[in-house]
């Protein structure tokens, strides 16, 4: 069968609408009857990813494919790229500007949390071109 495919534009530098794509995905997963523990993992991982695109990349696109056994989320942006992915993955490492930190974001837990709450995560990034993060959450304990 074909997957349920959803696409969202994530607006840059707009904290008011940030999280609306992950909200829609949460709502869809609940209607599909996906178990609450997986909905929560997706919610946390996708929200963090969406916020990252807003803070660092001036927005981007989210493409989501839902299968009977898993969800695949692809977050693609045309932002500055990540020079050192290993460093960016460390707990607490952040390049968020002070203005963003003052809003309570930028604690350096975004990427680590995305990895923690997904079953696989792949980051492809080219400095100056952009970043594509692909996350998968399996619907099985």
């Amino acid at each position: 069968m074909t997957a349920l495919h959803l696409e969202f534009d994530v607006a840059g530098n707009n904290f008011v609408s940030a999280g609306s794509a992950s909200d829609e995905v949460k709502k869809t997963l609940k209607m599909l009857g996906v178990d609450a523990q997986f909905v929560r993992k997706v919610a946390i991982a996708m929200y963090e990813g969406e916020i990252n695109m807003v803070i660092h990349a001036g927005g981007g696109k989210a493409a989501v494919d839902i299968y009977p056994d898993k969800i695949v989320i692809v977050l693609a942006d045309h932002g500055p790229g990540i020079p050192d992915i290993e460093l960016a993955m460390r707990d607490g490492y952040s390049t968020a500007p002070d203005a963003i930190r003052d809003l309570g974001f930028g604690a350096g837990m975004g990427l680590p949390n995305m990895k923690k709450y997904t079953d696989s995560m792949d980051i492809q990034s080219t400095v100056g071109k952009g970043t594509t993060v692909t996350m998968t959450v399996n619907f099985a304990a």
């Binding site: 069968m1 074909t2 997957a3 349920l4 959803l6 869809t28 609940k30 209607m31 599909l32 009857g33 996906v34 839902i66 299968y67 009977p68 619907f139």
Partner: peptide, 20 residues
């Protein structure tokens, strides 16, 4: 489960595709 489209996830996905 008042919002659930179907008890079978595959069927629910098909219904959601129809909704979309």
């Amino acid at each position: 489960d008042v919002y659930r489209l179907d008890s079978d996830l595959s069927v629910a996905i098909e219904k959601m595709q129809r909704i979309e």
